[in-house]
């Protein structure tokens, strides 16, 4: 068990099953994904069978069982986004990154996720990179957008 997982679990002493999802969220927030070791550790902490935790982790969209890229790209595929051409945006990003949804690029830079609806329909189509939203995205903007996300990070540092 990593220190990060240990620290999360210490924040939930004597927790019951209803703490499972918050714990998994906290673990993922720290480690970026749910490793096998983390799942086993959570199971021991909550006295829950590993199969149950795996069942929960695979039920919800939020949980990842593989490490994400350094930049996490979410493409919204909600109704408004769909009507406004998000399918093309998604394929543009897939082409630019050469990965499919739920994959991480070979250099570990980007991971791609398709989100059912990100809730910013007024700006459709929407792409979120590392939690920052970009509205009115066009398929041809994909590459530039990804580059900008990289720069933003450099700028922030």
């Amino acid at each position: 068990m990593t220190d990060a997982v240990q620290a999360v679990l210490e924040g939930y002493p004597q927790a019951r099953r209803d703490a499972l999802i918050p714990i998994l969220q906290a673990v993922q927030a720290k480690e970026g994904y749910l490793s096998t070791e983390a799942v086993i550790a959570v199971g021991q902490h909550l006295k829950l069978p590993t199969s149950k935790i795996y069942g929960v982790a695979t039920f919800y969209n939020q949980f990842r069982l593989t490490p994400p890229g350094r930049h996490h790209v979410q493409v919204c595929r909600g109704t408004a986004c769909h009507v406004k051409g998000s399918a093309a945006v998604l394929s543009g990003i897939q082409r630019a990154l050469k990965i499919e949804p739920d994959q991480t690029s070979k250099d570990g830079e980007y991971s791609l996720e398709v989100v059912a609806c990100i809730g910013a329909c007024g700006l459709a189509p929407v792409v979120a990179i590392d939690g920052a939203f970009f509205g009115d995205v066009k398929a041809e903007d994909a590459a530039a957008l990804l580059a900008r996300a990289r720069e933003m990070e450099v700028g922030d540092e």
Binding site: V39, T50, I53, Y54, F59
Partner: peptide, 14 residues
């Protein structure tokens, strides 16, 4: 347990 969701739901081990 059940694993996955929707059309991809299945019964699996951990």
């Amino acid at each position: 347990d059940f694993v996955g969701r929707g059309a991809k739901a299945r019964v699996e081990t951990a």
